[in-house]
């Protein structure tokens, strides 16, 4: 996306929200051999500052340092996403197209939020969410120093305090391994689908947006995966 829009016209900063091994995260960056700026943010500082609760998320920031749009589920195109289980196709190119429009037309782009929209969207977070944030950072600290027991305890507490924050769920579950995290994501998304109207991501409202809801691929439930699920999630 960066190269096709024109590197001289804007700055793309790609931030990994990853508490894991920086070398492993770095390999993801290297594989993409990026021409843009890449940073690893092991304490999820950026998500806390911008109030993001899932990845990918993105903000457009104008020449004056003002946020003009901020969304979750901002895939650069249709992507295959791994949830520790296999690949699932996800996302669409609506965000990339809107971004191109904003880079070219600036404040005249129809995708720039008005100040009223901004005020409605960029909300302060409530007390529980702020406590959850401090708790999540405590969990990341204990994870970093190898104290798994305390890390898991605080991940669980953060998840309880801010149940809508996917980052706390996904990063916390990843502590038990990618497969465990993948199964938990599936279970939680399917539970939400049945009981609420919540999505994995809030809709961006951009034209051409599709499949905002994460659905389990049918090929997934082989007997082996079912057995692993039973054991990992201690399901009957």
């Amino acid at each position: 996306m960066y190269e096709s829009i024109g590197q001289d016209r804007f700055e793309l900063i790609s931030v990994a929200q990853d508490s894991g091994d920086p070398k492993a995260v770095g390999r993801w960056f290297d594989r993409a051999s990026p021409t843009f700026r890449c940073v690893i943010d092991p304490t999820h500082q950026i998500s806390s500052l911008f109030g993001w609760v899932n990845v990918p998320s993105a903000a457009w920031i104008d020449e004056d340092g003002t946020i003009v749009r901020s969304n979750e589920g901002t895939y650069p195109g249709e992507s295959t996403v791994g949830f520790g289980l296999g690949k699932v196709r996800f996302g669409d190119d609506s965000f990339a197209r809107a971004t191109r429009d904003w880079i070219e037309r600036g404040a005249d782009s129809e995708y720039v939020w008005s100040s009223a929209e901004l005020a409605g969207r960029l909300k302060p977070v409530d007390e529980d969410a702020r406590r959850a944030e401090a708790t999540f950072k405590l969990a990341l600290h204990f994870e970093a120093v190898g104290d798994s027991e305390r890390a898991l305890k605080h991940f669980a507490a953060a998840q309880r305090l801010a149940p809508d924050n996917w980052l706390y769920h996904r990063q916390g579950w990843t502590h038990r391994g990618a497969l465990y995290a993948g199964l938990k994501v599936l279970r939680r998304t399917s539970h939400l689908r049945k009981t609420t109207d919540k999505s994995f991501y809030d809709p961006t409202g951009l034209p051409g947006e599709k499949h905002r809801r994460f659905t389990e691929p049918e090929w997934l439930w082989t007997p082996a995966v079912r057995r692993i699920k039973q054991l990992l999630l201690r399901e009957a």
Binding site: F10, E11, V39, I61, E63, G84
Partner: peptide, 24 residues
Amino acid sequence: RNGERLRLSDFRGRKVVLFTWASW
């Protein structure tokens, strides 16, 4: 990744797309 410090405010005067992702 290359070891340089990156500050958002250093990019005033340019448009910035800030993008998060994760390996998990």
